[in-house]
Design a binder for these strands. Structure first.
Lengths: 226, 226
DNA sequence: GTCTATAACCGGATAGAC
DNA sequence: GTCTATCCGGTTATAGAC
């Protein structure tokens, strides 16, 4: 938490060495085949020492997740700065994620599995991962802000989180997608993003205001996240 | 696979003893705290023997899942035979599940976590669990069949699976729900089931036929299940 | 070929000395 | 903060009984 920018403490460096070792080994052998003993050895520390810094093997995955997220944001910049069409922007961000995470599909499955566990720190609804989640949602705020669409204020407020949820659905599909170069997921993203944009327009229709109000209220009331 | 109805083979009985032991211990101590050695001892078999019948600790959970499903179907019968209103029937089935599974919320989380793994036999999209999944979807077929609603044929065909998916969403919420007696989930089910019924009516509107067609086509094309 | 038992392995996790 | 030694439990190898 607190940390001198000038001299990075010894602990910090050791910790970084362990993370680096884990990332390399995870990439090379996969999560299951990578043992904590291997991680410790590569990092040049003892097994017990590795556990001093990381309570479990599982939490080492978080580092991996963070890395992927950063790469995703970077890869999204191109579309986001070149088009103001909602559909292009949304689809572009989805495609960027596939591009970036494609080599790590098996990993993503692990992350997803853990995320499904209510008690896991990786759980996206969990307090511990609030920051990560909010960062991910922010990306969709940018998607909307830069698009030339008019949506009712009430909907606009919830839209980023809704789109994030939608994108999580795409990820879920992708995890099960065995097609070459994730072609099926790419197709799915292309088709559904178009529909999502249409649904946003539909939901913005004044005639549907009562239903929309109700759904949005529900979302607020039952948001799992505090 | 093949098995005489008359004399249950010795193996069958041993297998049953192991499942029974596991279910009791899981209920009593939870999944993690229950060791395979405990299960074996309680079943009166050796550890190796338990593994002869069950390839892993994980597959023992399937027995638990099956038991819950059967109980859910049974508990659903009351509403299904007493009302022909779609909303009542749908909500009734959702409530029945909460009633039945309430004591096992922590378990359900484990099942869910495993189900999220593409390679797990518990994965609802996995070939191995096709039968279980179809059985679950069938329940929603009954929900619709006995209801006095008119929906376009194309939608009717997909509706059971759609409702099943919706119900899985409720389960996901429930897993994270820490409220007394799952009160929040019950409220969520009540509110959303009402909205779902309204959405079905909306989607049945002739004006929305083109969009509906498109969404349904998408569902068919991208069904994860073969 | 169907079933059962014993012993060992392996790796995640912890205790406690320095 | 770091190490060594150890535990613990899922899983496997293997040998033999029915």
């Amino acid at each position: 938490m607190q940390q001198d920018a000038a001299k990075t403490g010894k602990g910090e460096r050791t910790k970084a060495r362990i993370v680096d070792a884990a990332l390399v080994l995870f990439r090379e052998h996969g999560y299951d085949a990578t043992t904590m003993r291997m991680v410790a050895e590569r990092a040049g520390v003892s097994l017990g020492n590795a556990y001093y810094y990381f309570k479990s093997k599982e939490v080492l995955l978080q580092a991996f997740y963070k890395e992927m997220h950063d790469a995703h944001v970077a890869a999204s910049q191109e579309v986001l700065s070149s088009s103001n069409k909602l559909h292009d922007r949304l689809l572009g961000v989805l495609q960027a994620r596939i591009d970036v995470t494609e080599p790590y599909r098996r990993f993503a499955a692990l992350l997803f599995r853990q995320a499904a566990d209510p008690d896991s720190p990786l759980n996206p609804f969990h307090e511990a991962s609030r920051a990560t989640r909010e960062e991910a949602i922010q990306l969709f705020e940018v998607v909307i802000e830069g698009a030339n669409v008019k949506v009712p204020k009430d909907l606009a407020k919830e839209l980023p989180e809704l789109l994030w949820t939608y994108s999580m659905g795409i990820v879920l599909f992708w995890i099960h997608d065995r097609s070459e170069d994730s072609a099926r997921t790419r197709k799915l993203a292309a088709h559904t993003s178009d529909i999502v944009v249409k649904l946003i327009r539909l939901a913005s229709n004044p005639l549907l205001r009562p239903l929309r109000k109700r759904v949005l209220e529900l979302l607020r009331d039952f948001r799992v996240t505090g």
